[in-house]
Amino acid sequence: MENLYREIILDHAREPRNWGVLDPADIDYEEYNPLCGDRLRITIRIGEDEIIDGLGWSGEGCAISQAAASMLGEEILGKSLEEVKAWTRDDMLALVGIPLTINRVKCALLSLKALMIGIYGQKIWDRMEMEDED
């Protein structure tokens, strides 16, 4: 149990980084987790050389989905769109870094899904899901 709710997860869940949506934003996208109804809205500003120089998000969800969003935001702020595009499901699961059972994987991936679809559209996410799953 402590594995799942490690201190770093609880820390991000209690004090989410980059909380609050940006207005105006270059990207503003909301995604849902059909399994539990969690909601995650992600907003991004894109600066020179396609660098993400502003990011804010809000949402409702379990500690894992909220912590994952917080960790992802910290990770990609200051990165280029090209770097973000190379992210995979496995990168995201490694970032969250806790053992997840089959029904909880979606919680950890919700923010990545919102980010990818928000920036690049549905197709890239469909492809990521297809590539990563047998």
Binding site: L35, C36, I102, N103, R104, M130, E133, D134
Partner: peptide, 30 residues
């Protein structure tokens, strides 16, 4: 699919494992 408890996780894993077996059996891509 929506359960968090151990039985639902195990049932989901077994159900999706069967889907993978069928995929390999007819050589679908995914």
């Amino acid at each position: 699919h929506r359960g968090i408890h151990k039985l639902s996780e195990a049932a989901t894993a077994a159900f999706e494992d069967a889907r993978r077996k069928v995929r390999r059996f007819i050589n679908a891509e995914s």
